[in-house]
Design a protein around this nucleic acid. Structure first.
Ligand SMILES: [Zn+2]
Ligand SMILES: [Zn+2]
Ligand SMILES: [Zn+2]
Ligand SMILES: [Zn+2]
Lengths: 168, 168
DNA sequence: GGATATATGATATAATATAACACTATGAAA
DNA sequence: TTTCATAGTGTTATATTATATCATATATCC
């Protein structure tokens, strides 16, 4: 089945509870390997492990939650351990930071340098990652009119996801 | 001169260095008075003072910077003093929180409950507040398609303002 | 191997935000 | 007018998120 252009603009939807969680972590790590190899970046064990933990959490996760998990295998991990790995992963487009949550989430399309919009559920903190053309163009147009140049278009919108609407 | 529809969608532009700073603080406080009176809210001296300090800073300001200024007149002000006032001002649409900066900025149109988009300069931390129809609609359309309901549409875009582009 | 840059370890501290409980002022109910 | 209830503020302590700094290790290049 061919993906419509509309589907491609949804980089990561709200998660169906059905999908194969283990596999999506494996795929994400493989994609990261590819990106780093291509760009000559050193994807060290620490960085890989942090990325794995982020994907395993399967949603935005905070730096200190990450640190706690990391300590299961690295007893003396400290905040800078995590923050340095996060910096590397962000600089190279492997994860995004969600400002509204002070949390970090795996990027659903790391091989492509893309703008991103996040829909963030205020109840369950799940997020959807989009690269919606219309939103992007509307933002670009207005920014241009004001002489504002967008370096990395990251849009965050807070609301309520469908699951929470049904549940609450 | 009549405002175009386009102008109305720019709630607060990047500041021209020429405008009358003192007057815009006065106007903002007057508008807040009006809003609170209309809604039966108690606009206490503390809350007024915090709002004044925010407008006086004339751009996004952090809670602890605010606290420091507040202490000039309230020697024993503490973090909760500021955060409670900020909560009140946010709940009632008199200020916005800029997540990307951990900072607070006066709302340019408090009498109207509106969606907002912020263009945030990563170099000088200035912001422009917009209520762009096209951005709003594009976001709404996509959210709807995903079953996501937006409660308060707040969009934050990071980049570089025209002044900084010229200066750097 | 020695020089250089990159990555991590380790300790301390900064910056942002909230919890908890006490006290005061205000205004309505009795 | 007393009493009660609520909203607002004071005060102290603590939680959460992020960075600075210096030391050590590891990889890369010549
Ligand atoms: Zn992405
Ligand atoms: Zn939800
Ligand atoms: Zn506003
Ligand atoms: Zn600027």
């Amino acid at each position: 089945m061919k993906k419509s252009s509309d589907d491609r603009q949804v980089i990561a939807p709200f998660h169906s509870h059905a999908h194969d969680h283990g596999q999506c972590v494996v795929d994400a790590i493989a994609a990261a390997e590819t990106c780093c190899a291509k760009d000559g970046l050193s994807f060290t064990p620490l960085r890989r492990q942090v990325l794995e933990l982020i994907w395993s959490s399967h949603g935005p996760i905070g730096a200190y939650d990450l640190l706690e998990k990391l300590r299961a295998s690295r007893r003396n991990a400290a905040p800078p351990t995590v923050y340095r790995a996060l910096d590397f992963l962000m600089e190279n487009g492997l994860i995004h930071r969600i400002e509204s949550l002070n949390a970090y989430v795996g990027c659903g399309d790391p091989e492509r340098h893309h703008g991103a919009q996040f829909l963030i559920c205020r109840d369950c903190q799940c997020v959807a990652e989009l690269d919606d053309d219309e939103i992007g163009k509307a933002v670009t147009r207005r920014a241009k009119a004001l002489g504002f140049s967008i370096h990395q278009q990251t849009v965050e919108v807070v609301g309520q996801c469908a699951d929470c609407a049904a549940r609450l």
